[in-house]
Design a protein around this nucleic acid. Structure first.
Lengths: 205, 205
DNA sequence: GTCTATATTTGGATAGAC
DNA sequence: GTCTATCCAAATATAGAC
């Protein structure tokens, strides 16, 4: 737990290492980033770097834990309340997802996740539990409430949740891929809203 | 163009190099696979390997071109005919997609694509054009026909195509991730069909 | 076409002075 | 905490004999 990462007590150098390494890892991946390059960009020698971190892997793990630090905070009560209103529930969830997609920091962490997804079993498992299961849980709870209240057609809530989240993920991946090459993503900015509209029309009674 | 890759005239060693390298690259990625290891697994020295390929990158590119060698073959006429029947069009397209998802060779090429997606601009661009645009084109053509014939509710065909393909992609990614750790994917085998059913109910008039 | 030998570079990591 | 110096391993690639 990062209680020890007290921004006040931590040395500025360590903070800078984290920042530099984060940028490099999220661009070139673990193997593509050398300790040499991190040190050079920080402005110190490699040996000095080892005063702050045990080794390269420790730096990576320190950064990697940030990938899943922005979970979806929807309380049970919040879900119940929003779901009773139907579409606003989907809108709120989607706006949160969209925000993460375009947030600089979340964006680079998502890129890192995609880069290392097939190289790191731990990340794959966290991807499944944090990116998939967690979202499915929140969404299916909402859809369940909507069904109970006859707002949407009756079906399997988890299946509907799966259908809903998959498009959000796909948009996010596309945005990430395009932005990596600094290509325009204007055409995708409204895609999230379009998805909600289309989906709501599909399921409402 | 691989006219020169005549299976008859090509040396068995070169064929074996391709096979071994393909397996390694699709497991460990470009950086994670060394020429040493390829040579060792083939059963020759590294130096001998350079008699068949100019360098490591040439081996990779040779293999990488296979990633996009299984495009969707839907002729204009075929689309027209199937789309006139509505749901069968979606079923046919989806079954093709499902087949690729579970085909051993396509599976490992898809994994390679995911591994290198964020490391290789060329692959990103091909991903966009071959995996995304090509699918959107076929699907939106089909949806357009369905709208003209009043089989589905009127809307933007490309937007509907986007919605449809995103779920297929998401299922494929999940299958790939799970299989990488030899985890069960039974629960996902019927997901494709469920998606078609749900989607058709969503758009049919 | 394959081998041995070797050149060269890059990368992770440590020892010890300041 | 940072530096210089150094070590060691791994990786790409080439030369030249067989």
């Amino acid at each position: 737990m990062p209680e020890n990462r007290d921004i006040k007590t931590e040395s500025p150098t360590k903070t800078k290492i984290r920042k530099v390494a984060s940028t490099l890892f999220s661009q070139y991946g673990y193997k593509g980033t050398s300790v040499r390059k991190i040190a050079a960009e920080v402005g110190i020698r490699e040996s000095a770097l080892y005063n702050h971190f045990k080794n390269k892997e420790e730096i990576f793990l320190d950064i990697a834990q940030e990938i899943f630090s922005s979970p979806f905070h929807f309380s049970h009560d919040e879900i119940q309340e929003l779901a009773l209103r139907g579409k606003p529930f989907l809108q709120k969830f989607t706006m949160h997802y969209k925000m993460l997609t375009f947030d600089k920091s979340s964006e680079s962490m998502f890129r890192l996740l995609m880069i290392e997804l097939m190289q790191n079993q731990e990340l794959r498992e966290q991807f499944m539990s944090q990116f998939h299961d967690a979202n499915i849980k929140v969404l299916s709870e909402g859809f369940f409430v909507m069904m109970q209240n006859n707002l949407i057609r009756s079906s399997d809530p988890m299946m509907i949740a799966y259908e809903f989240i998959s498009t959000l993920f796909y948009i996010r991946l596309q945005v990430t891929v395009l932005k990596f090459d600094t290509k325009p993503v204007n055409h995708l900015t409204t895609q999230f809203e379009k998805h909600v509209d289309f989906f709501w029309e599909s399921i409402k009674v």
